[in-house]
């Protein structure tokens, strides 16, 4: 494998090199402690050493507000929204977020393939970066290590004084062409040490989660939960949405938009007439967790949780998805027959 070395003080130069070819989106400082993905205008603002962004790259392919069509009320005509490929370099992406996009790709391509998402997905060059797991990451437990290069075109692994640069695909080689880098001489990058673990391998989790249906853990979690929906809104594999009409003040036209929605919110299952099909927070918590660890994995063999730790890190009430799953595991080991 051909490995190059990118010294920390040349990161800026690399960003400039990429910006000459395509728009670049990368993590940048936002607020006092946080980092968010944004379009790069100043190469020096790019931050490659960070723990997580509140929103993942999902926001570029399924924007929080996404116009579906424009309508004209005067003649009841409409036009489809113009959807353009992102056609950009996504730089400094962690492996779990790349894995989340694989999952969304599946959701938006299987059954009825959706143009809005799939069109935006085109033309992306993925440049990944390794990370040091913090107190919330548990990607290792779902099989996605910090050095996982799957899905990336170029991957940067942190080593002393800079990054080891691996060209993963031909596309990756093309985007780096003309940017001279020396051979990497350093040793192997650190594979990272996780502080959070799910106690059971994914292959066995389906069985455990199936048996967890009537577990007291859902009611106990509900006691602590305010139902604010933050866990849905920050999740990189949540893709549920609602549709809204916006009418201009002249009342001559407007737009139909889809907006992010979440299964933790009360109205999510409410139908006209007032019936709410998942009324309690316990049922909603159960649905949220089983969607990540059972429903979609039954179908695909892959967990729909990528271990980014966002739902836990950004939960004001401190509800930990790892604790919920581990509680299900330990209950199962004590009483493996409580399956419904």
């Amino acid at each position: 494998m051909d490995l190059k070395f990118l010294a920390s003080d040349r990161v800026e130069a690399l960003v400039s090199h990429l910006m000459h070819q395509k728009a670049v989106y990368a993590p940048q400082r936002m607020g006092r402690h946080s980092v968010a993905l944004d379009k790069v205008t100043n190469p020096a603002a790019v931050v490659l050493d960070y723990s997580r962004t509140m929103q993942s790259v999902k926001k570029y392919f399924q924007p929080p507000r996404d116009e579906l069509l424009k309508f004209d009320l005067t003649d009841q005509s409409f036009a489809a929204a113009t959807v353009e490929p992102l056609d950009a370099v996504l730089l400094g992406i962690h492996s779990y977020d790349r894995a989340a996009i694989d999952r969304l790709d599946y959701n938006f391509s299987q059954g009825q393939p959706e143009k809005n998402y799939l069109k935006r997905r085109e033309g992306v060059i993925w440049v990944g970066v390794s990370y040091e797991p913090d107190e919330f990451h548990f990607s290792g437990s779902v099989g996605i290590g910090p050095l996982e290069t799957e899905g990336f075109d170029v991957f940067l692994s942190r080593v002393g004084g800079g990054y080891q640069v691996e060209t993963v695909t031909e596309k990756g080689g093309e985007i780096l062409a003309g940017f001279d880098l020396p051979q990497a001489e350093q040793g192997k990058p650190s594979p990272g040490h996780f502080h959070q673990h799910i106690f059971l391998p994914q292959a066995r989790l389906n069985e455990v989660m199936a048996a967890s249906y009537s577990s007291p853990v859902w009611e106990e979690t509900a006691q602590k939960c305010v139902g604010c929906g933050s866990c849905n809104i920050v999740c990189p594999t949540c893709y549920c949405f609602n549709v809204e009409e916006n009418v201009d003040i002249k009342v001559t036209g407007g737009t139909r938009e889809r907006i992010w929605d979440g299964c933790m919110l009360r109205e999510f299952t409410e139908v006209a007439g007032g019936e709410v099909f998942r009324g309690g927070l316990a049922e909603r918590q159960r649905h949220r967790v089983l969607r990540k660890f059972k429903y979609l994995s039954d179908r695909t063999g892959h967990p729909w949780c990528v271990g980014c730790g966002r739902c836990t890190a950004y939960c004001t009430a401190g509800i930990s998805i790892v604790s919920i799953v581990n509680r299900c595991v330990s209950d199962f080991e004590k009483h493996p027959t409580t399956a419904v």
Partner: peptide
């Protein structure tokens, strides 16, 4: 009956378990 919003298996509202 459930809240079928998109009709194409994307929006999540009508899900009953999986």
């Amino acid at each position: 009956e459930r809240r079928m919003k998109c009709g194409v298996g994307k929006c999540g509202h009508c899900q009953i378990n999986h």
